[in-house]
Simulated scan of single mutants.
Amino acid sequence: MIWNNCKHLAAWLVVLTLVPFLAGCSVYSFTGTNIDPSVKTFSVQTFQNTANNGPAYISQRFTEDFKDFYQRNTTLKLVPRDGDLQFEGQIIGFDFAPAAIQNTNGVTQAGLNRLTIQVRVRFTNTKDPKQDFEQTFQSYADFNADQDPTSINNNPNAIRVPVTNIITDTFNKSVANW
């Protein structure tokens, strides 16, 4: 009987010791975000495509993917405008260039082509203006040289990797404080 009481007492002591650590002052989630509890909403203005040669769909695709990523990875509510966290910007670069050169039978040609996308993001935190930033994020994807850049432009899945990387980098800078 005494042994059972000691086990219960020990269990309660462990729980009481851990409670202060579990109820800390900062906010943490399993996605790594560090969002102030007073922040409840976010808004995303359409990212306009100002790149000379980006596909017509990239503005809408990037903006919707951006919204979806924040909705999946935070508990923030998306609002049409004036969110506690505000995002806006432009797609400023969409460029193809050779990434690797190869020499086949004395002919020098591209072995890989690289698509590089650049997006300028303006972030406003209405609850903590010290976290505001304006920054250009860039990412790329490599394609076989025999793939025509026009076919890549017409394939929304071809831009998935650089778009996802840019959105993830923006997420880390804005709410994960990396």
Rank of each mutant, 00 (worst) to 15 (best):
I58T: 10
F62C: 01
T63M: 01
E64I: 03
D65Y: 09
F66C: 02
F66A: 04
K67D: 05
D68G: 10
D68Q: 14
F69P: 07
F69H: 14
Y70V: 07
R72F: 15
T74D: 08
L76I: 00
K77W: 00
L78C: 03
R81F: 06
D82M: 08
Q86N: 10
Q86K: 14
F94P: 02
F94V: 02
F94L: 01
D95V: 15
D95Y: 12
F96R: 02
A97N: 13
A97I: 08
A97L: 10
P98F: 06
A99N: 11
A99K: 03
A100D: 06
A100K: 14
Q102N: 09
T104Y: 09
N105L: 13
V107W: 07
V107R: 13
T108I: 15
Q109K: 10
R114H: 04
R114V: 05
L115F: 01
L115V: 03
L115C: 01
L115E: 03
I117S: 02
R120G: 07
V121L: 06
R122N: 14
F123Q: 04
T126V: 11
T126E: 07
D128Y: 05
D128T: 15
P129H: 13
P129A: 14
P129F: 09
Q131G: 12
Q131D: 13
Q131S: 15
D132T: 06
F133A: 11
Q135Y: 14
A141H: 11
D142R: 10
D142E: 05
D146L: 00
D146W: 00
Q147W: 00
Q147L: 00
D148C: 03
T150G: 12
N153R: 12
N153Q: 10
N155Q: 10
N157E: 14
N157S: 14
R160G: 11
V161E: 15
N165V: 05
T168M: 12
D169L: 15
D169S: 15
D169Q: 15
T170P: 05
F171D: 04
F171M: 04
N172Q: 12
N172F: 11
S174G: 03
S174P: 02
